[in-house]
Every structure is written in C-alpha cells, then in structure tokens.
C-alpha cells in the first residue's frame, strides 16, 4: 500500500486517495476552437511509461484536494508530491 505525502495534510495511506490519471495532460481552453486531432489527444491519448510518471491523485477522504504525484510506475517509488498549482521538477 502506497504512502502518499499530501502537500496539505502530510503522509497518508493510499486508502485515503483516489487516482486521477496523467497530470501532464492539459485541457484545451474553453470557448476556443480546437482541431479534432488536438481534442482526441486530450480525451484519449495517454502515454503509459514504465518509470517516472507525474499523475493526479485526489485526497478524497481527507482535504479533498487534487494533488500531483511523481511516481515510478514499475517500483511505486514516489519521488515528489506537489499542489496542482506547483510544478514538479
């Protein structure tokens, strides 16, 4: 079971979080024209890397904040966590 450091609450068990997918995906701006390729990339296309991956988690049983977690998908090692407004190096 992973041990995730919520930037607001501190180290908490995985049980308190819910997974939210790739954090690097950026939604096209609202009210702006987008090509269907761009839109399809946003909705469907995801990389599935073996190794470092920046992903979203929500602390649903805690502060309810969405956070960024940089995790190794092969070893589950967590290198860094951050608020969604912060950058992961």
């Amino acid at each position: 079971m992973l041990y995730i450091k919520c930037p607001y609450c501190g180290l908490r068990a995985q049980k308190e979080f819910s997974y939210g997918g790739d954090a690097t995906v950026k939604r096209p701006n609202i009210n702006e024209e987008v090509s269907s390729e761009e839109w399809d990339n946003f909705v469907y296309m995801r990389k599935s890397p073996r190794g470092k991956h920046v992903e979203l988690w929500q602390h649903i049983a805690g502060c309810r904040q969405w956070i960024k977690v940089q995790r190794d998908t092969a070893t589950h090692e967590i290198f860094q966590t951050a608020k969604v407004t912060e950058e992961i190096r």
Binding site: R27, Q58, R64, Q65, T85
Partner: peptide, 17 residues
C-alpha cells in the same frame, strides 16, 4: 453523488482555478 463532486472539484482546482 460522489463522482460528480470529485468531477466539479477537478475542474475548479485544476482546469479553471
């Protein structure tokens, strides 16, 4: 109910802060 709340929070916190 729970999914919709998370959905709204997602857009407010991440997409349209």
């Amino acid at each position: 109910a729970a999914n919709v709340l998370s959905h709204l929070e997602y857009y407010l916190q991440i997409v349209w802060p």
